[in-house]
Write a protein that binds this DNA or RNA. Structure first.
Lengths: 331, 331
DNA sequence: AACTATATATGAAACGTTATATGAAATTAT
DNA sequence: ATAATTTCATATAACGTTTCATATATAGTT
C-alpha cells in the first residue's frame, strides 16, 4: 500500500474512480470521455488533490514548456524590465521561465549547457561571450547581438535611435555635441547608436565629437573628459548623447558636481528608458527602448515553428521622451 | 535505427561504449567504475555529445533541483534585487529558479498550483493573498508575511528599522515628525515599521503624527496631505519617515514642487535601500534592508532538511544610510 | 588446481505520464 | 434478427533515467 503522505498519481486516481489509467489521462488533458466517467474521475481528482507530474509529461512529450532566459544582471533596471516583460509574454502562453543571471561571460556557456540539460524548449539570451556553443536543436533567440544567420536577433532600432538623439539635440538648439561611450567595443547592436548619432549630426550640420572613455572608474573618467573641455568655466559642448541611461545618469551627476547646470548649460540624452520605479518618470531625457515589444518578439520568434521564416534581425522602433535633462519647455 | 538528429540517450552511449546502461549511469553520476569502463564511457559521451535528460532524472528521483520564486513585480527595484540575490543563492547550490511574477494576487494561487505541478522542490514567496492554499509537502518560505507556524517567514527587522528612523531624525535635529504610509493595511511584517517608529518617537520625545493616506493617485494624496500641514509657506514637520523608498521618492518630488527644500526644510527617510543602478547611491536617506542576507536565509531555510528546526520568523538587521535627503553633513 | 570470497558490471524493473492498438459494447444498416 | 460499423474504455508499451538483485570476473586460500 502507498504511504499516506505520498503524492497521488494517475494510477491512484484511476483506482479511486474505478476506471482505467488512460481514461484519467484523457480527462486531465480535456479529451472527450463519457459523461459518467468524466464525473467520477473529476471527483476522484478533487478527493485525492491530484496534480499532474509535469516531469513525467516532459519525459513523454519531450517538451517542457520552459524557456531559459540568460541575462547579465537582473538587478540592473533595464535587464530587470526585460526579464519582467519576457516573463509576462511567456506566462501568457503558459510557458515557464528559468532565470539565469550571468555574472561573468564565462558563465554564459555554463548556463547554456545547463539549460540544455534541463531540456528547456528554448533559450533567450543577452550574452557577451563571442564564441558560445549552442546546440543545433535548441531554439535560441539573441537580444542585441547577431550570432549568425541561424539565430534570430531582436534589438531596438539602435541606429535610428542614435539619429533621433542627434536630431532632438539639434531641434533643442544645440550646435556642438558629444557622443559618450565607455569600455571596450563589442560587436553588438547597441554599437549602432554611435553610427546613427554621427549620421544624424552630419545631416543636421551639428559639430560633434565621438568619445569612447576608458573602462575605468566612471566618475574619474568623466571628470577627466569634462575637464579637458571646460574653458573659463564653460563647457565646449551644449549637448551630450550617452550610449546608455546609466552613463547619462552618471555624467549628469559629474556635470552638476563641476557646477555645470543640466539642462541649462548642457542638455543630456541617454538611451534605454529606465525609471527608478515602474510608472515613475524617466531618470533623464532618453531614447526609450520598446521593452514589452522586444519581449513579445523574442518569445514569438522562439516559439514559432516555422524556422525558415525567422528573420535574422528584427529592429523595433524607439521613441524619444524628455526626462528633464533637455530644454523642451523653453522652446 | 534512431534518427540521425534525435537526442542521444544513455542507451546510445552504452551501445557506443559497449557497456551496460547502468555503467553509463554510474559514470554520469560520478560513482566509481572500472578505469577502462570509465574512459570508454567518457569517450562515447563526448563523441555523441550526450547530455542527461533532467526530466527523466526528476521523474525517477522525485527531485528537480528547481525552486519557484513568487514576487509581485520584478520591475520594481526592491523585488528585482531580491530576485537577483535569491537567484544567486540558489545557483550557488546548483538549484535552478523558476520566476513567477504575480501581477495580481489572484494569480498567486494559480502560480503556487503551477509550481507544485512542476514538482518544484520548494517555493519562496512574497505574497499578499491572505488565504493561500499551500500543499503540506511543498516546502514554502514566506518573505515579509507570517503564514502560520508551519511556514517560516523571513523579513528585515522592521520594528527596529522604524525605531532607527525615529532615532536618526531625532539625532539630526528634528522635533516634529510624520510617518507616512499609503493604501490598505495588510497583516504583514513591514507594518511593524510604523510601530517601531512610534516607539522611537516616544522614547526620544519627538512629537509625531502617523498618517495613512488613501490608496489613490499618490501625487494627489501627497499634495492634499502636505497642503493641510503648510501654514505661511512653512511645513509643520521637519522630518518625515516613509514606509518605503518609493513613497519617500514621490513625496520628495511633491515637496520640491511645493517649494519646500529637502533636506533643508524637511528631512526625509525611506525604507528599503533601493538604487537606480547596482552600485549607485541610494535614491534617498533610508533604512536599508539586507537583501543578500534575506535571500541567503530564504534559500537556507527552504532547502534545509530539518523541518522542526525551522523557526517561524527570522528578522534580519537593518542599517541606516544617508542618501542626501537628510542633513548629516551639517551637524 | 579447485574453491570461496570479493568486487564490480549487468540488465530488468520502476518512476508517472501519453499514445496506440485492442476489444467490448452500442448503434445503425440490411 | 443479424451483420457491419461506430464508439469508447481498456490495457500495454514507450519516454530516459536510477536502483537493485543477479551474474560474472578477479583475487585470495587451502
Amino acid at each position: 500500500m502507498k504511504s499516506e503522505h505520498s503524492v497521488p498519481t494517475m494510477k491512484d486516481v484511476a483506482r479511486e474512480a474505478g476506471v482505467a489509467l488512460g481514461t484519467v489521462s484523457k480527462v486531465v488533458n480535456g479529451i472527450p470521455v463519457g459523461e459518467s466517467y468524466r464525473l467520477r474521475v473529476e471527483e476522484a481528482i478533487k478527493k485525492l488533490n491530484y496534480q499532474v507530474n509535469s516531469y513525467a509529461q516532459g519525459l513523454k512529450a519531450n517538451k517542457t514548456y520552459t524557456v531559459a532566459l540568460l541575462l547579465p544582471n537582473t538587478e540592473d533596471p533595464f535587464f530587470a524590465s526585460l526579464a519582467y516583460h519576457i516573463n509576462l509574454s511567456l506566462l501568457k502562453r503558459r510557458y515557464r521561465m528559468l532565470l539565469c543571471c550571468t555574472v561573468n561571460s564565462d558563465q554564459e556557456q555554463e548556463y547554456i549547457t545547463m539549460a540544455q540539460q534541463n531540456k528547456v524548449d528554448g533559450i533567450i539570451g543577452l550574452t557577451y561571450n563571442p564564441n558560445l556553443q549552442i546546440e543545433e536543436n535548441t531554439p535560441f533567440v539573441a537580444i542585441d547581438r547577431s550570432m549568425g544567420s541561424k539565430i534570430p536577433c531582436v534589438a531596438s532600432d539602435n541606429f535610428a535611435g542614435g539619429q533621433l538623439a542627434a536630431e532632438k539635440l539639434a531641434d533643442l538648439g544645440c550646435t556642438n555635441v558629444a557622443f559618450l561611450r565607455i569600455g571596450s567595443s563589442l560587436d553588438n547592436e547597441p554599437n549602432k547608436r554611435k553610427a546613427g548619432f554621427e549620421n544624424g549630426c552630419l545631416s543636421r550640420g551639428l559639430s560633434y565629437k565621438m568619445k569612447i572613455l576608458n573602462d575605468g572608474e566612471p566618475f574619474e573618467e568623466f571628470t577627466r573628459f569634462l575637464s579637458e573641455h571646460i574653458h573659463d568655466g564653460r563647457l565646449s559642448f551644449d549637448g551630450i548623447f550617452c550610449v546608455t541611461d546609466r552613463l547619462a545618469y552618471l555624467i549628469i551627476k559629474t556635470l552638476r558636481q563641476l557646477n555645470l547646470r543640466v539642462p541649462e548649460d548642457v542638455q543630456v540624452i541617454g538611451f534605454d528608458g529606465i525609471r527608478v520605479f515602474p510608472g515613475a518618470e524617466h531618470v533623464c531625457s532618453t531614447i526609450v527602448q520598446p521593452v514589452p515589444e522586444i519581449a513579445e518578439m523574442c518569445v514569438n520568434l522562439l516559439l514559432q515553428e516555422n524556422i525558415s521564416a525567422k528573420p535574422p534581425l528584427v529592429c523595433l522602433p524607439v521613441t524619444y521622451v524628455s526626462g528633464g535633462t533637455t530644454r523642451e519647455g523653453e522652446i
